[in-house]
Every structure is written in structure tokens, then in C-alpha cells.
Amino acid sequence: MSLLRIRKPKTRKGKKVLLAREPQLVEPARTMVFLDGRKCGGNVKQCMKDLQQLKKPLVKVLNRKNDITPFDDPSSLEFLAMKNDAAQFAFGSTSKKRPDNIVLGRIFENEILDMFELGIKRYLSISDFKNEKIGTCVKPCLVFNGPKWAQTEELRRLRNLFIDTFHREKVESIRLQGIEHVLSFTVTDDMNILMRSYQILLKKSGQKTPRIELEEIGPSADFSIRRTKIASEDLYKQSRKQPKQLKVTKKKNITTDGLGNTKGRVHLGKQETGSIQTRRVKALKKTPEEKRADRQKKKVALKAAAIEALTASG
């Protein structure tokens, strides 16, 4: 019976670690923690290794066996992800009931947002393809084939998870020659997901844009979807909420032309020409006749008003 102490960091490094675990305005690129289940070997192990290869250096690999069942009790999984400051996890296991099982998921607020259990039906690893490899840290193009991706909520979330996992990080610009890797995900009618990985070869086309040829480099896998757990609509919406500070507010009346010049439009409001002081000129002054006429006019108007008021009251 004691209050859980919320410790103050004692070292500068410890402070850094704790600060990294706090919510941030702009979040860093997502790391993925790789965990082994009670038994993890063969295709699953190979698949995990290839995924690590694809995600490097945003990975955290834990090599011990874990007695975790993510769909029954995810608490220790969540804890491990929290400790390693990972936003995503891959959990590999193989059993008689679920052979070659890999669970991919992500974390929101130290709790599992959604996770998908994929069974590996057929697997060819990167090392099975004997050809030139691409370098690490290459931002891949992502291709999703098939009409089913948009049809069910589950597949939409899975598609989002794949994008989240493989897009690496948000970039402002990209080197044109650096586009050399494409990952394709095809969902078939019998709900299998075919994942393929190709190298992009840029060929001449006689125009500015090159013609593209693909060469398979692996990994190549056929997944079947087993169990899934997706976040409720509310939670998912909450997790996608972006901070207000990052929203770009449009500034009114400022434009930039083609040459890069900034132009502003200024509104001055109505000018009160009647009350402003202008130069007095004798010629503009009223003559005595005009003054008299004005006075007369005023008198007549007053009289008329008085008569009207009297008739109204009487």
C-alpha cells in the first residue's frame, strides 16, 4: 500500500528519456518494437528479420521469448512498447493452432489502438532473391491494389497501418533518383493479402519522365487475416486529431505573385470628408444672401415640424 512514486529524473539522460515519453507537438518517426512469442521460428522469424531490414533504423528488436497473448492480455505488450518508446509493434509466434503468426499493431496513449493477426501462407525472404539489393533508409512507394481496400472498415484500418509502418517518415522533398523501391499490397477476393517488394528501374522514354520497370527483390509474402482488433470510432478519431498549433491559418489580403513578390491589400475605411479640416478659402465662404436663405429655410422646417407635432398630439 504505497503511492506509486512519480520519480524525478536524477540525470540529464534520464530527463531526456522521460521528456521523450511526453506528448509532443511534432512527433518523431515511429519506431517499431519486434517481439518473439513463446515459439517463434521458421517463416515468422525470417519475416520479422526482413521487416526489420525494411524499417531500419527505426526498429527496436527484443530477442527474448515472451509469454504474451496480445489478443487476450496486451498489458505486458503495452508496457514493453512504452518502455522502448515505440509506436508500433510486431509480434511473431508460431503454434499448432496458429502456425506462422505475426501480429502487427500500433499504440496510442500507451494502449493498443489496433492490431491485426496475419498468418503467413507463403514466404520468400530477401535472401531468396539473388539480385542487386537497394540501400537502407529508402523511402518506398506504396501501392495498394484491389477494390477491397476501401470496402470494409477493417481493411481501411489495415491499409492505414501498412502506410504507417512503411512510409518511414514525412519528408519535405525527395531526390528523384532516390525513388527506387516499391511495396505493393494486393487484397484478393478471398481476403488474402499479397505483399510484394520491387526495385524500380528508371528507363529512358524519350521524354522528361522516365519509363519504369520493376524487379522483384523480396520479401514476398501471402498473408491471411486471422484475428483483428480495431479501435472504436471515437478513439480512432481522437488519435487522428492534430494539434491546433500546426494548422496553417490563412492570412487575408496577402498574395504572392509568380515572381515571388508578396503583395498586400490595405483597407482604409470610409473617409469622413464632411468633418475633416480643409483649407479655408474666401471664395468658398457663404455670402450674406446665402446665409440668410439658409436661416429662412431652417425656420420654415422648424415651423412645419411644430405644426405636425401639434396635430399629432391634438
Binding site: E22, P23, Q24, L25, E27, R30, A87, R106, I107, F108, E109, L113, N160, I163, D164, H167, K170, V171, E172, S173, I174, R175, L176, Q177, K208, T209, P210, Y236, Q238, S239, R240, K241, Q242, P243, K244
Partner: peptide, 30 residues
């Protein structure tokens, strides 16, 4: 290839637009 490009250190770099796919955050905004 239709995007605006510029030259940075002997390589041609294309400026990417803002992504339209919204991905969930890891934690709530502070």
C-alpha cells in the same frame, strides 16, 4: 516528375506536397 524541382548538391530534388493521408498520432497533442 511533374512536381517543382530544384538542384541540391548535384542531384535533382522534387518538392513533395503535404500528405493527405492522416495517420494516427502516438500520443494526444500536448
Amino acid at each position: 516528375w511533374e512536381l517543382n524541382t530544384e538542384r541540391v548538391d548535384e542531384s535533382i530534388v522534387a518538392k513533395l506536397p503535404e500528405p493527405t493521408t492522416v495517420l494516427p498520432r502516438m500520443r494526444k497533442p500536448p
